[in-house]
């Protein structure tokens, strides 16, 4: 390839065009880093931590649900595996939750691949069904198991983590700020991975396989295999959030870490925000988490489930009018504003 072909990319991608598209994300990061300096209320910080947690979960989900073009509806299973693995290891064997987090991650990867193995070769509906059934099946089992071999699971009563030893090594803090920064760091990591995947061969193959599997196969892509890779990464990352959740709340039980509602909320946030895009999950969490917290706080007693009606309604409207999620019109607006300001600068 000669030099002229290399420069031929320039008319297609104006130099520096990557920067403005990254600018909002970086701005968001700067704001996120500064937030605990201003928000001193533990309640609001708690809500923000949950927002970041869901942004993280959705970003992890997006790797398979967005890029691979399938619909996983049982990611709570990985949250549960992560939470239980690290908690059991730390309670019974004194293993640092950080180590347990990684162990849980690999366990989830294994499970994710096992679910994907038979289902990725079939129509997407099977995969969606399999993930739901697996997650629910796992929850039912954990609810029934007090003891799994040497491991104490405590059935439906769940596990409490006594806050005996605080500190980073034990993943346990008296204040909320450390949790805030940990989940923020995890989110940055997940977004970074997503970004890298979207610009890699894997990302291209996933997108192609998700959109037109036959065409993708004819171009040398083993579609089922790349989906498995995506599933592996996604289930690993999702599992880490389970450990975070356990250490943050210090109490886990099957309904809190494995409920179908978690799986669906993740999927809804991704779909409304815009699946398959990097900003979509972040945007979705930013828009929807406050709705659900607000409605739970103010209408929790009088109108239970109101936020879910809103979620469902918003989801249908978004699918009808913006099937690629809300990130698309916003990105377009942003680009237009950018172009206009650039035009003004040229004229001025």
């Amino acid at each position: 390839m000669n030099a002229s072909t290399a420069t031929a990319t320039s008319p297609l991608r104006p130099p520096g065009s990557a920067w403005p598209s990254r600018a909002p994300l970086l701005l968001l990061l700067a704001v996120a880093l500064a937030v605990p300096l201003f928000v001193r209320s533990a309640t609001y910080l708690h809500i923000l931590i949950l927002l970041l947690l869901y942004a993280y979960l959705t970003t992890s989900w997006n790797l398979v649900g967005g890029f691979a073009g399938v619909l996983p509806l049982g990611h709570a299973a990985f949250v549960g595996i992560g939470a239980y693995t690290s908690t059991v290891l730390s309670l019974q064997y004194g293993v640092s939750p950080w180590v347990g987090m990684i162990v849980g991650g690999f366990l989830s990867t294994l499970v994710g691949v096992l679910i994907g193995l038979p289902t990725f070769k079939m129509r997407g509906a099977y995969f969606a069904l399999a993930t739901i059934a697996f997650a629910e099946g796992l929850r039912v089992m954990v609810e029934n198991i007090d003891r799994l071999g040497p491991f104490l699971l405590n059935g439906p009563r769940g596990l409490q983590i006594p806050p005996l030893e605080l500190g980073f090594g034990r993943f346990m803090f008296a204040e909320k700020e450390p949790y805030y920064y940990i989940i923020l760091a995890m989110l940055v990591l997940a977004v970074g991975i997503t970004w890298a995947v979207s610009r890699s061969k894997l990302g291209y193959c996933l997108a192609a396989g998700g959109e037109e599997p036959e065409a993708a196969q004819s171009l040398g892509i083993n579609v089922a295999r790349v989906k498995l890779v995506a599933m592996a990464i996604s289930s690993f990352l999702t599992s880490l959030a389970g450990t975070f959740w356990a250490q943050f709340t210090l109490y886990i039980h099957p309904k809190s870490v494995m409920s179908l509602d978690i799986s669906f909320e993740i999927a809804f946030i991704a779909l409304i925000g815009g699946r398959g895009s990097i900003a979509g999950p972040l945007l979705g969490a930013l828009l929807l988490r406050p709705v659900s917290d607000f409605s739970r706080i103010h209408f929790g007693d009088t109108l239970p489930g109101l936020h879910l009606v809103i979620f469902g309604g918003v989801l249908i409207l978004v699918m009808l009018y913006q099937p690629r999620g809300l990130q698309e019109p916003l990105t377009r607006l942003y680009r237009r504003a950018l172009a206009r300001s650039a035009g003004m600068r040229e004229r001025g």
Binding site: A128, F268, L308, V309, F311, G313, L315, I316, M319
Partner: peptide, 14 residues
């Protein structure tokens, strides 16, 4: 599929 899950959530919570 996604829209039907939206319908599910709306109907159940309604």
């Amino acid at each position: 599929i996604i829209v039907t899950t939206g319908v599910w959530y709306i109907l159940d919570n309604l």
